[in-house]
Structure formats: structure tokens, C-alpha cells
Write a protein that binds this DNA or RNA. Structure first.
Lengths: 345, 345
DNA sequence: TCCAAAAATGTAAACGTTTACATTTTTGGA
DNA sequence: TCCAAAAATGTAAACGTTTACATTTTTGGA
């Protein structure tokens, strides 16, 4: 501890630089902020001192003091960093943000509501300029509060039911509809749905697309074919195992996200069940390596990168103009047909 | 802008709570910090005000003011969030950190040295309690400086050459050696190595293991079989394409990381070349879905989660005791033999 | 009931910046 | 050379906390 204090007290600050270059701290501050009022000679002198003392402005103090947005920092709070879809989103956000001189700090709440609140609190009190978040559910009070406080927020992947907020998402109903329609069109009637938790709006919408396709094809909805638990690899694995042991085994599986798909694939392979001969599978979310899976996976592609980029752009617009109308951007999905589905004969 | 100001000025602070409950700000501060000196009655009164005003302490101010470590925040700076290995590391770090009431803010520098510096700067001036980082190369000045300033730092995946620092990594030489030895033992002689950039110490070590195995088996090292570029999917794809078009095509590929492997797989599949009949492949880094790849992938497994956990633990120890000896933890790899390698006949 | 000690509360300075306003220095026309 | 205006610099307060020290209130034994 003593060591620490010793160190921190040595960390150079405005005052040290001011003394070193024999000017006031105000002048040093001006140099740091490129204030045109400071004379060239002084500027050079101060810059030399800054270099000599290896001075770096304390961003904490800057943020506490200043109202201006010079210390550009975005927060990004995501439900599951293991999910490649959210990784794509992160990349998209970073792509736009970095181009506009924002840094992005990421908090991963791992589907844990308490963690989500924690990161929301931290980022808020860090005085970030804005936040991109996938709310844990539609009535997420934490995110609601931020919106109500007029902190710039953009929701991604899912919106909020009780509050008007910027959202970038995908047409989930349409995406699920296209996948299920495809399966139905090639003769499947018993299609299991491995879903995430229905607290998450995304999965409600995907279920609705699933039902809509069934009814369009005149197939009765069978509740016992819908399985909802967590959204991770393990759930996919376990639920798939359960499905595969069903008496009247479904001929096809529709899995609700990347991780569920990957888990289901492992379960199927472990039992040496053949895809697509013995069972067909379509996943929500495509992956760069879908083509390298066994067999190449048919999937509903979400443009994760674009969603992230768009969200960052909208956040930027809101930061610049906090009163502009809330926007609701709904991107399209694309059904990537590969080798994991086959007709029923 | 005006809207923003309006809002912030309304954000409740210590003073507002103090006025509301008719005590001094010091007392409110004590309540927040669970100071046992405050009387029960006052405590309840103040807590009621806090609830009524929805007051949340401003962490920026807290961090600026306090020397104590009550506001626990760790930084985690990683080279590539797309790489599932680093995702595992993140999860391990979060696992330990969260158990110990630390939050983790992640910065992803995407192999870009400037971005890495930016995140290092931000996190440092955020007064984080400690930092876990995979330095971009062995002479990373940014990380060196933090270490020299006695800011608690733990390096992951790679160390620093010029400075004594806590490190958690894997025995890369051994890992590569085991993979190449296996390939040699089943008759392969022309083994291509798709590596990452040799500025990254990890890849130098992996190359060294590659060479060592060759020499042990009396096979001459052929420099033209070593390809080093970036560490992403695209590089893997492009380099694999080049390899597959070589006149005297190698019989096996050793790919240096997850993403390179996945990219190479796509290239191989796109050309309809059969694994392992036509070409064998072993990747560095295992993935949860390796078994679901076509064919199930043989890989050198790194314990990413454990590395992250261990790093967080070491960081914690260093925060608590800044003068303790620097530690160098080297974890073992494990060769997971599946179906992507076959003997030469 | 009184009063010393303990408990509770308050005051004010400090963390490292930015910035409104005040003061000093420089500039350049007469 | 002088002096008003412009340019450069400085002073001091403020951001929202924590905390050392001072002050006030409560407690309980005689």
C-alpha cells in the first residue's frame, strides 16, 4: 500500500508541469486542450515540460470537471461475449466509434441481471458519453432509467417495451419464419425449437415467426416441441439430448442462437446421428465458419457487424443532438441454405 | 446540448441528499460507505432520502478523491475479441473478478498498436486498480511504462522481454512440438505452418517448437513452408489458398491459432479437398465446437479460462501486496487428437 | 443532577482538472 | 514615444466526493 501511495504521489499532474515550465496551471490546461489563445513560445515550453515529466492528464478529473465532450468514451454492455453474434456487434461498434475518435469500454454481463446493473451503474457514473446495450429483457428498469435521465442510449438486438428508445434490431419474426417455412416446404412437420429464455423479447419474436410459419402451412402448433432455457452452449447440448431421445423424434431442429446450435451439433454428433439424413437443423445466427461445420450449416444470418456499426452511428447522432426523434431500425435477416437440411422422403 | 446540461444538473448528488435528510454531506458520505459511526436513526433517515432521490454516488468523484480501493475496477486489454481463445480468457478473468467484487472493463485493440496505447492510456487515467493485458509485442513500451510506474499489471499469453512482470502463459514451444511430433510420427514430412506475426512472442515460441520437432525427427527445416501474416480469419483463408496451390503441396498444415485454423478450413473446403485423406490439419487452440467441425478437429488445447482466472488472481494478489515477487506461471497445453489428421501411406 | 467520556455529527480542505473573469503583457497606429 | 485594443496569462472557484479534525450530542456512573 505504501508503495502505491508513493507512486501515485509521484504521478505528475498539472501543478508539476506548471512549476516545471514556470507558468500557471491554467496555461498548462490550455496547452493540453489546444486553446488557440496560448502563445507559440509558451506552448513549446509547456509541451517540453509535459514530455519531460511524462505527464498524462488525469481523465477522471477531466471528466469530473468538464461539461464538454472532449473525453470521448462509449459504453457497450452485452449479454454474452461467448456468442459470436455479439462479438460481431462489438466489432461493428468499435469500427464506427474508433473512426470518430471514441473509445469503447465493454462490459459483459453473462445473462446475469445483477451484473448488468453493475455495469450500467459503473458506466453511468463514469460519465460516459453514451451507451449501447442489449437489455436483459423488455422491462429492464436499469436501461429505462438511463433513458429517462436523457443519457444517450441505443438498444441493440432488443428494445424496451415501456419507453421510447433508439433501437437497432433484426426482424426476428421474419427470420424464424423463413427458416421454418423452408423446413415445412421440404416436408418437415415435427420441428423442435431450442429457444432462449422467453423473457428476452428476441425469443418471443422468433417463437412467433415459428408459429406463423406452422399456421401458414396448416401444421398444428405443438407446445411440447418448444424448449426454452438459457442461451448458452450447455443448454443447447442438453436440450438437444432431450429432443433426440423423444419417442416420436422430431425430424428437424430450429435452434435459437449460435451457441445453442453449436451445443446441439455436439449432442447430435456424440450420438452419431447423421445430419441431414437423420435430422435436419437450421440455426438462428450465422458464423464465419458455418461452412466448415459438419455438415455446412444452414442458418438465419443476422448482420451483426452492421448492427453494431449502425448502433454506434445512431448513438453518435444522439450525443450530438439529444432531442432528435427516437429511431427504430430493423435490419433484414438472410436464410443461408447449406447442407444441414434435407427433404423428408 | 442544453438538454444535456439541464439533465446533469438535476442528477442528485451528496448535497441534495444532505439537504433532503437535513444532515451534512459528511454524514451522507458515511452512510454510503457504511461507516459504523453513524447512528441507526440517521442512517435510516439518510437511506430513505437516497431512495427517494434515486441517488447514486458519482464514481468519478469517488475515484478522484479516495485513495482506498473501494471502487473496484479492473482493466482487461486484449488483442482480438474475435478469437475464441481470448473470449475464454475474458470469461476466466470475469469469473474470478466478479467473485471478488471487481468489475472488469474490456478494451479490444484488434492487433492495432495505436488502439492498444489508447486503451492503456484510458484505463490508466481512469485510475483502475489493476490491468490484465496481452502486450502487442515483447517490447511493448506502453505496458512497460505501466509496470515501471508500479501499476499492478499481469501479462497474459505473452510476456515482456525488458521488464520483470507477472505473466500467465502457456508452454507454446511444447504445444507446437507435440502437434508437429504427432504429424511427423505418422509420416508427414512437408508440414506447412500458418503463423501469426513473428513480432508476437507467442509465435516465435511456436515456431521454435515446430523446428525442434523437425530436428528431432531428422527432417530439414524448410523456410518456404512457414507463412506469417496477421492472426485473423482472412489471413488463414488466404495463406491456406496459397499453400494448397503449391507445386509440391504439403501433406499437413499446422495453423497458429483459432482464427487461422477456421480460415484455413474454409479454404480447404472451398476447394473440396478432403481432410484428412488429402491433407491433415492441426490447429493451435481448441474450441468448444471442434468436435462439430468437418472433420472433428485435432488441436492443441490452451486452458484459456484457467489462464484468465489465474491472471485475475495474480492481479488481485499484486493489488493487495504490490511488493511481492513477480511470478511467471506457465500452463500446459494438451494435444486433442480427433479426426483431422491421418497417417501418410 | 452533573460531568467526563464516548458517540455522533459537522466543517472545511483536498483530489486534478476546466473555465469565467481579472490582470498583465504585447502590439501597432498615431 | 504613447496608449488603446488585442493577446496572453493568471487567479480562484467549481465538479462530487472523502476524511482529518473540530464541535456537538448522548450516555451512564457517581
Amino acid at each position: 500500500m505504501r508503495c502505491k501511495r508513493l507512486h501515485y504521489s509521484k504521478l505528475s499532474n498539472l501543478k508539476a508541469v506548471a512549476e516545471h515550465s514556470k507558468v500557471s496551471i491554467a496555461t498548462v490546461s490550455r496547452v493540453i486542450n489546444n486553446d488557440p489563445k496560448v502563445s507559440k513560445a509558451t506552448m513549446l515550453k509547456v509541451q517540453a515540460s509535459i514530455a519531460a515529466l511524462e505527464y498524462k492528464p488525469n481523465r477522471v478529473a477531466q471528466r469530473l470537471r468538464s461539461t464538454s465532450k472532449k473525453t470521448k468514451l462509449l459504453g457497450l454492455v452485452i449479454p454474452d461475449i461467448q456468442n459470436p453474434f455479439f462479438v460481431d456487434v462489438v466489432r461493428g461498434v468499435e469500427d464506427y466509434a474508433y473512426q470518430n475518435n471514441f473509445a469503447v469500454m465493454i462490459g459483459n454481463f453473462g445473462q446475469d441481471e445483477k451484473k448488468e446493473k453493475l455495469y450500467l451503474d459503473i458506466l453511468q457514473s463514469e460519465n460516459i458519453d453514451g451507451l449501447i446495450v442489449a437489455p436483459i429483457h423488455g422491462k429492464d428498469k436499469g436501461v429505462e432509467n438511463l433513458v429517462k435521465k436523457n443519457i444517450p442510449v441505443v438498444c441493440i438486438d432488443r428494445g424496451l417495451t415501456d419507453v421510447d428508445v433508439d433501437v437497432v434490431k433484426v426482424n426476428n419474426e421474419q427470420g424464424a419464419f423463413s427458416a421454418i417455412s423452408h423446413l415445412l416446404s421440404i416436408g418437415h412437420k415435427r420441428i423442435a425449437f431450442i429457444s432462449g429464455n422467453f423473457k428476452i423479447p428476441t425469443y418471443i419474436e422468433r417463437l412467433s415467426g415459428y408459429k406463423k410459419a406452422l399456421s401458414e402451412y396448416g401444421v398444428a402448433f405443438d407446445e411440447s416441441l418448444v424448449f426454452a432455457r438459457d442461451t448458452d452452449y450447455k443448454s443447447g447440448f442438453e436440450i438437444a439430448n432431450k429432443i433426440l431421445e423423444l419417442d416420436n423424434r422430431p425430424t428437424a431442429i430450429f435452434s435459437g442462437n449460435n451457441l445453442l446450435t453449436l451445443g446441439a451439433l455436439e449432442a447430435i454428433h456424440a450420438k452419431s446421428i447423421k445430419i441431414p439424413e437423420d435430422i435436419s437443423i437450421v440455426g438462428f445466427d450465422d458464423m464465419p465458419w458455418s461452412i466448415s461445420l459438419n455438415p455446412p450449416l444452414s442458418a438465419v444470418r443476422q448482420p451483426g457487424f452492421d448492427m453494431g456499426r449502425k448502433a454506434a452511428e445512431m448513438l453518435y447522432e444522439r450525443i450530438v443532438n439529444p432531442t432528435r426523434e427516437k429511431e427504430n431500425v430493423i435490419l433484414k435477416t438472410e436464410l443461408m441454405l447449406r447442407k444441414s437440411t434435407a427433404p423428408i422422403v
